[in-house]
């Protein structure tokens, strides 16, 4: 079979390979090259070496500010989302009536697209702030809080489902034995439940982390970076650099390369943790 299959390369691989080359491989290679050039359209690129990279790390550029904002946002959202999701999962694995219904409702916001989510929360947050006579564009901390609220609303249900699956895999006997040995609820959670759901914790942490770090749609619709570009996260900052003003495309592309390297590092760390866990188990 496999000798016969080998000849069918064009039939089985071209339909994936050709779109993949067009939409990914060529653009990535071009993108890396263009980050060392100055250009407005691709054809007029002139090589400028590391100029774009110097520019994005200079104090006049928004990039470092966006990076810092993104890091703060990512840390807070990862912690809050996972804490709430885990607590909900604990409540929903006690065999209470209505559990399925609650699960369905909590998961639902996850299906709504980022642009729509952004405008839903813009309405709510502006409504809450109207008592103070301001709106979300008034201060970066309102935008930050709004993003955290939105992200929690969107991701809690998703992470909760993963935690529930993990909690349901814990053998009932283990907790019963612990109870007989005199363990209280906290001890049982700390020494039995938590160690057994650690794989799920790793998955959920990295899912929230990468999701928050790469967030674009929600940020774009909710604050659009306002006030100024103070609440632009990395993805939005790159977009604004590309399309906000003519002539800074090279800098935008260089930012995209740095952004990619940061995301790749996160993926590497995740792989390391997942692999290590597999060895332990």
């Amino acid at each position: 079979m496999h000798k016969a299959l080998k000849k069918y390369f064009p039939v089985f691989v071209f339909p994936t390979l050709i779109p993949f080359v067009i939409s990914f491989l060529i653009p990535v290679v071009m993108g890396i090259y263009l980050s060392f050039t100055k250009f407005t359209t691709v054809s007029n690129a002139t090589f400028v070496g590391l100029e774009n990279y110097k520019q994005l790390f200079s104090s006049g550029d928004n990039f470092l500010h966006a990076l810092w904002f993104t890091v703060r946002f990512t840390v807070v959202s990862t912690l809050t989302v996972n804490l709430f999701a885990f607590a909900l999962a604990l409540l929903l694995t006690k065999g209470l009536p209505g559990t399925n219904f609650f699960r369905t409702v909590f998961f639902m916001p996850n299906l709504i697209g980022g642009i729509v989510l952004g405008y839903i929360w813009q309405l709510i947050i502006n409504g809450l702030l109207s008592g103070l006579g301001v709106d979300i564009t008034y201060s970066a901390s309102y935008g930050f809080g709004g993003m955290i609220l939105l992200t929690n609303w969107q991701l809690i249900g998703y992470m909760m489902i993963i935690y529930i699956a993990a909690l349901q895999n814990i053998p009932r006997e283990m907790k019963e034995v612990a109870a007989i040995d005199g363990a209280n609820a906290w001890q049982s959670l700390r020494h039995i439940t938590l160690p057994l759901v650690m794989p799920a914790v790793t998955i959920c942490f990295f899912l929230t982390l990468t999701n928050s770090f790469k967030m674009f749609d929600q940020n774009y619709a909710l604050t659009g970076g306002a006030p100024g570009r103070q609440t632009s996260m990395l993805a939005l900052d790159i977009f604004q650099t590309f399309y906000g003003s003519v002539g800074s495309e090279g800098v935008g592309q260089a930012k995209a390369v740095v952004f990619f390297i940061l995301v790749a590092i996160m993926a590497g760390v995740q792989l390391y943790f997942t692999r290590r866990r597999e060895v332990d188990a």
């Binding site: 939409s23 990535v28 495309e249 995301v263």
Partner: peptide, 11 residues
Amino acid sequence: IVPFQMVMFTM
């Protein structure tokens, strides 16, 4: 693992 912003313009 490559974020969309990396290829957005060239693509």
